[in-house]
Simulated scan of single mutants.
Amino acid sequence: MISIALLSRPGLMDPMKEPLARELPGVTFASWPEEAAREAELAVCWKPEAGALAAMPKLRLIHSIAAGVDNILSDPTVPDVPLCRIVDPDITSAMTEFVLWGTLYFHRDFDRVISQARDGLWRRYDQRAAKDRRVGILGLGALGTAAAVRLVDLGFAVSAWSRSPKVVAGVRTFSGADALGEFLSETEILVSLLPLTPSTVGLLNAERLGRLPQGAALVLCSRGEHLVADDLVALIRSGHLRGAVLDVFEHEPLPSDHPLWREPGVLVTPHMAAIASWEVIAQQVADNVRRLLRGGALLNEVDRARGY
């Protein structure tokens, strides 16, 4: 049976060992940087140490424990072996729920009334129909498409931007770098669901966020590296932006003394938008191990050129 190395912060993947052992009787585990991990054929990863994968001469497969692989491909020394990611159908539902909540948080003025409640202030705001609120989805992969469709079902005016042209019923779509500015200029609630690639790092900076209309808001549930946080804060403090829900950060967990926790207009959530269960992760890793051993096609293999 294949040997598996676990590359993550200490203890993170311990809950996966039991279900994975049930799926693959006889499998052996080792945690990096143990010597046995260096000799493993499969690396199961979350934010592996730079250079670690390159130091595994017997490596045959690298497997992320999440849908994203940016935390692995950020290391230029990653060896040229198959790389797979997790695709959990429940993640799509969970992310859609989070996007709907983040949209309603601003659309129904919960950001304002929660702040007022701390001061015992009773104040109601004029309500707008969903059809009069333009929500923009940045990224039209599986997650973005599902969220966009659900928002349309609820009656919102929905736009979406993607790298290449796509068509989604009821959604005003934009594609390519030249169309990004027009997309942003009409978006009142911006939801980021982009993959993290070299071209999307720092995409949400002062110039692009400044293209959003006065009073717009941001819901960030993609990757923290997409956002230039200081630019966001400056735009909120200036009054150009209304606020933001931030679920992801460049460095996690977000330190308790980080100023974003206490920034008026910003709500921090602990990377909770969508989390795959350890059972699903174990099942998909085990399935790919069996496919690897019999020479079959791997599930959810990453196109490294695209980064997903």
Rank of each mutant, 00 (worst) to 15 (best):
A5M: 09
K17W: 01
W32H: 13
E34H: 08
A36N: 08
R38Q: 13
A40E: 00
A43V: 03
A50S: 11
L53T: 03
K58N: 15
H63M: 15
G68I: 05
V78H: 07
P82Q: 07
P82W: 01
T96S: 08
G102H: 04
R108D: 11
D109R: 14
V113T: 14
D119Q: 13
W122S: 05
D126Q: 13
A130N: 15
R134L: 04
V135L: 08
A148C: 09
A160R: 00
P165N: 04
V168K: 10
G176F: 01
D178S: 15
F183N: 06
L193H: 06
P195H: 06
L196Y: 00
T197Y: 02
T200E: 00
E207N: 13
R211S: 10
P213D: 09
P213E: 02
Q214F: 03
L220S: 10
V248S: 06
H251M: 12
E252A: 09
L254F: 11
S256H: 11
P259W: 12
L260F: 00
V266R: 01
H271R: 08
A274S: 15
A282V: 06
A286C: 12
V289Q: 06
R290Q: 12
R291Q: 11
L293I: 11
R294A: 10
G295L: 09
E301H: 06
D303L: 01
